[in-house]
Each structure stands twice: as structure tokens, then as C-alpha cells.
């Protein structure tokens, strides 16, 4: 094998790499735009941290769903059931470890919360595996049927949750060491919100690492763009999809634990309520784009908190308005995925 072929002159030309950084400025721009509207800097800090925490939790929940759509064009409206399942499992696990969650020791609190998160992820992932086999697989490529059957799946899931845990709202108090606030200057920032931000960043970093540094991650990114080509290269895209679906369900379970602790109560309908926010986020971000999902989630979280404080009536539709504005600017979302 000897190199013997000359390069054609045209092969040397390449357009300048222009990084698309504008979307990265959206989150700080929104935060700064809200600053003059606030009565004080401390209020702004409190709301901004709350918005970032909410955004991080939404990102954890939505990141798997956006990949599921990107890989197989599957519209899973039943994603919410994994959120509710995760939250209810947290109720059971933390309830069983109330001695530890009631302790003021951070280590004991963590020893209770970590198993709750792991159990929620494992069970939600397992249920996700069954959900994909039984509900999603028969309707590949049929969007209308996907919407109907996955919504049906969520309703069934909610009813099963009512059978197991009952239909009433159940309190999910924060472990003792997670309660209270830290003072940043005059601003009171809830400890749990900071924890949520840290966990959200950790999940984002882990996801970024997997998608950019591992072969599986490369295949997922390639599959989102052109699944037929990935199959032509010898990879079974359905296996990959099942893996992503299970991981996405597990993350939704984790998000459910965090959302339940954020709200400090759980209801069987909580998944359906969060579902709306999730779909707004993945549409804003660009279907199939994890980076877009991250920015979209932070925008939604911040806007919900700012408008909730400044104009509660506007808060009801502020995220819809945000989605409309983003789509008018970029019809395929913040970071459109280059599809074949």
C-alpha cells in the first residue's frame, strides 16, 4: 500500500470554522435582562439560582428523551411516567430510611438519598426497557400511533402508581441537612437548589463525556444524524436505541427524585405536568441535541422563576412564548441536528 495519489488543488480549500456561540449567550442574556426588573440584587440571585436548579432537573429528565427522538424519531409522550415512578420510589426508600433523613448529619442524609436515586434509576430503567419492548417497538415509524399508545402507557402507569402508593399527594420532605438556605451577601439561596445545580452539571458533564469521548457516544451522535448509514457501517441501531431508551428512562427516574424533593411532595400526575415542560425544552433545543436541550432547560427554568415572581399570570404561558420566539429565530431549534 503505497501513497501515490496527488491531491487535487480544490481539495485544499475549506471554509473557516465559525463556531455557533450565540445560543451560549442566551442564558446569561436572559439572566442579565431580568436584573433591572428585580427589586434587589438579592432577589435576583435567589431567583436565578432557583431557575438554574429547576433547569438542571428538567435537563436531567429531558436529555434522554431528546436522544430517543433523534435516534429513532420516536415521540414518547409516556416519558412522564418514569418521572413519577422515580419520585414515588424516593418516597418509599427515603421513608424507610427516615432515621437517616431526619439526622442533621450530611453523610447520613447522603447515604439515604444516594440509594433512593440509584433505586429510582434502576427501576425506571427496567420499566423503560419493558416499555420500549411492549409499547414502543410495535409502532416504530408511526407517529400518530406513538403519541396515542405512549400517552395510554402513561395513563396506565399513573393508575398503577395510584394502586401501589394511593391517589393522594404524598409529602417528600428534604433530608434535614438539605433544608435551609445559605446566605450569599443578602441573598438567601436554598441548599437543595445548589445541590440540584451541582448534580445537573455532573450529569451534563458525564453525558458530554460519553457522547464526545466514547465509541458508543459517537454512534449515538452519528445515529441521530443518519441512522441508515450507521446500520450500513455494521451497527445495530435498535440495540443502541434500546440502550438510550433505558438510560433516558433511568435519568427521568433520577429527575423524578430530584423534582419530588424540589416540590417536596409527589402526585401521580406529576409526570404529566412536567411532560409539557420537557417537550418545550427539547423543541427549543433542537430535537436530538443534548447541548440544545441543556440551554433550553436553563432558559425554561430561569424564565419560569422570573415571570413567576414578576408577573405570575404571564408565567403560565411564558415558556410557550419563549418557544415561539426561539422557533421564529431558529425553526429547527437552538442547535439543529444535521439530519440526512
Amino acid at each position: 500500500m503505497s501513497p501515490s495519489v496527488a491531491t487535487a488543488p480544490a481539495a485544499d480549500a475549506l471554509p473557516q470554522l465559525v463556531a455557533d456561540r450565540i445560543p451560549l449567550l442566551l442564558v446569561p442574556a436572559l439572566a442579565l435582562a431580568a436584573l433591572p426588573l428585580m427589586s434587589s440584587l438579592s432577589t435576583w440571585v435567589t431567583l436565578t439560582v432557583a431557575g438554574l436548579a429547576m433547569g438542571m432537573i428538567i435537563f436531567i429528565i429531558a436529555s434522554g428523551l431528546t436522544l430517543v427522538f433523534g435516534l429513532m424519531d420516536v415521540l414518547n409522550f409516556g416519558h412522564g411516567v418514569f418521572i413519577a415512578l422515580g419520585a414515588y420510589l424516593a418516597v418509599s426508600v427515603l421513608g424507610a430510611m427516615s432515621g437517616w433523613t431526619g439526622s442533621e448529619h450530611l453523610a447520613l442524609n447522603l447515604l439515604a438519598v444516594l440509594p433512593a436515586m440509584l433505586v429510582a434509576m434502576a427501576v425506571a430503567g427496567g420499566v423503560g426497557f419493558a416499555f420500549e419492548r411492549v409499547i414502543i417497538r410495535p409502532v416504530y415509524g408511526q407517529h400518530l400511533k406513538q403519541i396515542m399508545i405512549t400517552m395510554g402507557g402513561m395513563i396506565v402507569g399513573e393508575e398503577l402508581i395510584k394502586v401501589i402508593w394511593g391517589p393522594q399527594t404524598i409529602p417528600l420532605p428534604l433530608p434535614a441537612a438539605f433544608r435551609g438556605s445559605l446566605l450569599l451577601g443578602d441573598a438567601a439561596v436554598e441548599k437543595y437548589r445548589l445541590i440540584a445545580v451541582v448534580i445537573g452539571l455532573a450529569v451534563f458533564a458525564a453525558m458530554f463525556w460519553v457522547l464526545s469521548r466514547t465509541k458508543v457516544g459517537l454512534l449515538i451522535r452519528a445515529g441521530v444524524q443518519d441512522r441508515e448509514m450507521v446500520e450500513s457501517l455494521g451497527y445495530r441501531i435498535r440495540k443502541l436505541f434500546v440502550g438510550v431508551f433505558v438510560a433516558g428512562s433511568a435519568l427521568a427516574g433520577l429527575g423524578g427524585v430530584m423534582w419530588g424533593l424540589y416540590q417536596q411532595n409527589v402526585t401521580p400526575q406529576m409526570g404529566a405536568q412536567v411532560n409539557v415542560l420537557i417537550f418545550i425544552v427539547i423543541i427549543i433545543g433542537g430535537l436530538g441535541s443534548v447541548g440544545g436541550c441543556f440551554i433550553g432547560a436553563l432558559l425554561v427554568g430561569l424564565l419560569a422563576n422570573y415571570t413567576g415572581f414578576l408577573a405570575p399570570k404571564v408565567a403560565l404561558f411564558s415558556n410557550i412564548l419563549l418557544m415561539v420566539l426561539i422557533l421564529l429565530w431558529r425553526p429547527q431549534g437552538i442547535f439543529p441536528v444535521a439530519k440526512r
Binding site: K215, L218, L219, R221, A222, Q225, D226, E228, M229, V230, S232, L233, V337, A338, R340
Partner: peptide, 16 residues
């Protein structure tokens, strides 16, 4: 249509 993964680098395309 060549089936190039546009969002991946040349190196990543080859690795896939």
C-alpha cells in the same frame, strides 16, 4: 448522498 455525519469531525467519522 455520501452519508457523512456532518456534526462529527473527520476523525470521528473514520472512527465510527
Amino acid at each position: 448522498n455520501m452519508g457523512i455525519f456532518s456534526d462529527l469531525t473527520v476523525r470521528e467519522n473514520m472512527l465510527v
